[in-house]
Write a protein that binds this DNA or RNA. Structure first.
Length: 424
RNA sequence: GGAGAGAUGGCAGAGUGGUCGAUUGCGGCGGUCUUGAAAACCGUUGGCCUGCGAGGGUCCGGGGGUUCGAAUCCCUCUCUCUCCGCCA
C-alpha cells in the first residue's frame, strides 16, 4: 500500500500518478483517507493526554500506599476511575478510525511511475524492444497441443482424469524438457548473482497480504481453509515474504534471489482459445527472480532484471518483444511493469512469458520491510520481481517454432540438460 | 493424534502486581591504548504512533479479562520444544 506520509505530503502528485491507473472516484478516495487520518491523530492526542494522567495517578497511588496514606490513595482511585471510562471511549474510537484508514489504504492501488504511459487496456501497451529470429515453419505446421499429442510428450486428457482441466501431465521427453528448462533457468540466474531459494508452495494469510494477493485477489488463489493456507500463485509470494518485518542491513543491497516453484492459479473467468493447450494452466512451473533494493537504485536494477530475462530468450533462440505496460493494464501492486512476449509461430500469436516489475515501497510498506539509512533511521525498501521464466508458453513456442519434418529441434543451450537434441 | 514444557530487546537469558522499556552477558557502534590489529578498559546500543520541539503515548507471541496500576494474575488463540504414536 502507498505510504500515508507520501499521500499527505504529495496529494497532487499522488492523484496525478494514480489517474494513470484509471482509479474510480480517485480524489474523493484520497481526501477521505486524509480526513480519516486527521481524525485519528486528533483522537490519539486526546487519548494520550488522558493516558498520561492515568499513569501519573497510578504512580501516585503506589507511592501513597507505600507511605500508608490509604485515604488519600482511595481518593485518587476514584479520580482514576473516571479517567478510565474516558480513555476507553477514546481508544475505541481511535481503533475504529485506524481500521477504516487501513482498509482505505489497502484498497488503493500502487501509484505508477510518472513515465508509465496512459491507456485503458493491453492495446495501449508500448513496444519498447524487439528481438527477431528467423523461423522456417514447414507447410503443415501444427499448434503445440497437436505436437504434444503427436510426440506423446504432454497429455492433457490424463490431467483431466486425475485432477481437472489445466493440470497437464508431462511424459518422457516432455517431462525431461521441463526439468531441463528449470535447471537452465536456475543456473543462469545463479551465474547472474541470484541466490537460489526453494520455498514452501503454501503460504499463510500474512504472506498473501504482504505481497498484495490478499485481500483483493483472494479468488485467484487456491485456498486450504482447514489450515488457513493458500497455494502460491508465484514464488514471488514466499520469497519476498522471507523478509517480511525485517530491518535489513543496507550493505546487503541488492538482495537477489531466484526460486523455482509450481504456481497455482484458479484463473476464474478464463475461457476460449486463450486457454487452449499450454496457453493458460491452473498449475505450471516458473522460475522467479526477486530483488530487495535501495530506493535510489531500484530502477537500475529493473533494467538489469530485464536484461537477464532477455538474455534467456536469446539463448533459447526465441523471437520476442518487450512491452511497457500502460496504466490500465498494470497490476494493482506495480509501479512499473515490462512484459516479455514470445512469438508462437504456429498459433501466430504473442505469448506472455515474463512480467518484470518494480513495486517501489508498495509491498515493503505492507510487510514492513525496511533498512536503515545513513542517518540510522528505518526506511522502506523497494521490492522487484520478474519471471525468468514461466515454462508452459516457452515450451509452446519452442515446440511450434522449431518443428521440422524430422522432429522438433531443441535449442542448443538445453542439449546438455536434456541429453538429446530433438523430439521425434 | 496423545502427554508435558515454553514464547521477554539482534542473540542468549533474568525478572511472578507499583519507581521495569525492562538486570546481565554476547554481538553491534564510538572511544582510550597500539606502528596496525587483537586483548583490556570506558561509553553507547529497539520498534511504532504523535508533536516544530520539549515531551507524551505504545509494544515483553496474538486477542480478551481482573486491577487505581500487568512482562508478572485469569481466559483464549497461535506457534515452538520434549516424549509417545505414525511416517517419506
Amino acid at each position: 500500500m502507498l505510504q500515508l506520509q507520501y499521500i499527505k505530503e504529495h496529494r497532487e502528485e499522488c492523484i496525478s500518478r494514480l489517474k494513470i491507473k484509471n482509479v474510480k472516484d480517485l480524489e474523493a478516495r484520497v481526501d477521505e483517507i486524509l480526513a480519516i487520518d486527521a481524525e485519528r491523530r486528533a483522537l490519539q492526542v486526546k487519548a494520550d493526554a488522558v493516558k498520561a494522567d492515568q499513569n501519573r495517578i497510578a504512580k501516585e497511588i503506589g507511592a501513597l500506599m507505600k507511605e500508608g496514606r490509604r485515604d488519600e490513595a482511595e481518593d485518587r482511585k476514584a479520580e482514576s476511575g473516571k479517567l478510565k471510562a474516558e480513555s476507553e471511549e477514546l481508544a475505541s474510537r481511535q481503533a475504529e478510525a485506524e481500521q477504516a484508514l487501513n482498509e482505505k489504504l489497502l484498497s488503493l492501488p500502487n501509484a505508477p511511475h510518472p513515465s508509465v504511459p496512459e491507456g485503458r487496456s493491453a492495446e495501449d501497451n508500448v513496444v519498447v524492444a524487439q528481438h527477431d529470429v528467423k523461423i522456417n515453419l514447414p507447410e503443415n505446421a501444427l499448434p503445440h497441443w497437436e505436437l504434444c499429442q503427436k510426440y506423446d510428450i504432454i497429455d492433457f486428457e490424463l490431467g483431466n482424469k486425475i485432477t481437472g482441466a489445466g493440470f497437464p501431465v508431462y511424459k518422457g521427453k516432455g517431462a525431461r524438457l521441463q526439468r531441463a528448462l528449470i535447471n537452465f533457468f536456475l543456473n543462469e540466474a545463479a551465474e547472474a548473482g541470484y541466490q537460489e531459494i526453494m520455498p514452501p508452495l503454501m503460504v499463510n494469510e500474512a504472506s498473501g497480504l504482504g505481497t498484495g494477493q490478499l485481500p483483493d485477489k483472494e479468488g485467484q488463489m487456491y485456498a486450504i481453509p482447514l489450515d488457513g493456507f493458500y497455494m502460491i500463485p508465484t514464488a514471488e509470494v514466499p520469497i519476498t515474504n522471507l523478509y517480511r518485518g525485517e530491518i535489513v542491513d543496507a550493505r546487503r543491497f541488492p538482495i537477489r534471489h531466484v526460486g523455482y516453484s509450481e504456481c497455482f492459479r484458479r484463473e476464474a473467468g478464463s475461457y476460449g482459445k486463450d486457454v487452449r493447450g499450454l496457453n493458460r494452466l491452473h498449475e505450471f512451473s516458473k522460475v522467479e527472480i526477486v530483488v530487495i533494493e535501495h530506493p535510489d537504485r531500484s530502477y537500475d536494477t529493473l533494467e538489469e532484471m530485464k536484461h537477464h530475462v532477455g538474455s534467456l530468450l536469446e539463448k533459447l533462440g526465441l523471437p520476442y518483444h518487450v512491452l511497457k505496460l500502460c496504466g490500465g493494464d498494470m497490476s494493482f501492486t506495480s509501479a512499473m511493469t515490462f512484459d516479455f512476449e514470445v512469438w508462437s509461430a504456429a498459433q501466430q500469436r504473442w505469448l506472455e512469458v515474463s512480467s518484470v516489475s518494480n513495486f517501489e515501497t508498495f509491498q515493503a510498506n505492507r510487510m514492513k520491510l525496511r533498512f536503515k539509512d545513513e542517518a540510522g533511521k528505518p526506511q522502506l525498501c523497494h521490492t522487484l520481481n520478474g519471471s525468468a521464466l514461466a515454462l508452459p508458453r516457452i515450451v509452446a513456442a519452442i515446440l511450434e517454432n522449431n518443428q521440422t519434418p524430422d522432429g522438433i529441434l531443441m535449442p542448443q543451450c538445453l542439449v546438455p540438460y536434456l541429453g538429446f537434441d530433438r523430439i521425434d
